[in-house]
């Protein structure tokens, strides 16, 4: 592959200015997707603008809530104890992303900006109601992650904007979470994935979150599935109903990794398994 002009600004302002002055240039963070696509013959941008040298983008603050730098590597994020302890489902999803080598390079922002239906971090972040902070010439704006994805490979970020950070609120008190990913071998893109969050009080599901990957044009919440359980005890009948609804709620396609029917089926199984596993965690405490 012939090399492209490569810029490595060290401030946000410089990055935005470069983007404005270089028509057809593209931002690049970890490069684990961009480089693969360029090698595969994707249209070549006029230049690449690296975001990895910008401290504002690689810095994360994690305490009661979390502000995760969009250009922080997944490995750096996984090294934050407070993140692993506070939002274990996100850590679990990130830990299942590809390989240690890829996690050293890949960024959370890149994982989201690719807007791939299979982005591993997305379902976990959706379960936590994450927001994305965008910055452009007009300043900053905040979008719910659910609003961020438009269609496969396309976000609602403006051409002159970049993703600053991913913001996550403190988890609901008592929240239990899990992430289930269907893959062919251990190092694989998700064929279907489910992240789930549950709070139970007095045997009743009082807070339910499901999000799924690889089963719709973009990573998605499953509100109807959530509604089927919320306010109810997780009885066999309720779980079966949630499972049925989940299978209807997703809209997978058939590709060489898996058939639509199979993916639908897996989503149902995972919704059931996640619900049972999370409900079981409340059994001892009540």
């Amino acid at each position: 592959m012939h090399p492209l002009p490569y810029h490595r600004p060290t401030s946000l302002e410089a990055a935005l200015e470069l983007k404005a002055s270089l028509p057809g240039a593209r931002f690049i963070a970890g490069g684990t997707d961009v480089m693969v696509r360029l090698k595969g013959g994707a249209p070549r941008p006029s230049a690449l603008i690296s975001l990895r040298g910008i401290a504002e983008l690689t810095r994360s603050e994690v305490a009661q809530s979390a502000r995760l730098g969009a250009a922080a590597s997944v490995a750096d994020l996984l090294a934050i104890d407070a993140l692993r302890e506070g939002w274990p489902v996100l850590a679990d999803a990130m830990n299942q992303m590809a390989s240690p080598q890829i996690r050293s390079s890949a960024t959370l922002g890149g994982n989201l900006c690719n807007a791939a239906p299979c982005a591993d971090s997305a379902p976990a972040l959706l379960v936590h109601g994450a927001r994305v902070v965008l910055r452009g010439p007009q300043g900053e704006r905040v979008l719910a992650l659910e609003e961020f994805f438009a269609e496969p490979g396309v976000t609602r970020m403006g051409a002159d904007e970049l993703l600053m950070s991913i913001d996550v609120d403190p988890p609901e008190p008592g929240l239990q979470t899990t992430f289930l990913k269907k893959k062919r071998v251990a190092m694989d893109i998700a064929i279907a994935s489910v992240a789930a969050g549950l709070v139970m009080n007095d045997g009743i599901c009082t807070h339910v979150r499901f999000a799924a990957g690889s089963v719709a044009p973009v990573p998605m919440r499953l509100p109807a599935t959530e509604a089927a359980l919320c306010g109810h005890p997780p009885t066999d009948a309720r779980i079966a109903e949630a499972r049925r609804i989940a299978e209807e709620e997703v809209s997978p396609i058939t590709d060489i990794r898996g058939g639509a029917d199979y993916r639908r089926r897996i989503i149902g199984v995972y919704v059931e398994r996640a619900t049972r596993a999370l409900a079981a965690r409340f059994e001892g405490s009540e």
Partner: peptide, 11 residues
């Protein structure tokens, strides 16, 4: 290797 899978150490 993205879509032709051979066993990894985990398999």
């Amino acid at each position: 290797f993205t879509d032709y899978k051979i066993p990894t150490a985990v398999e």
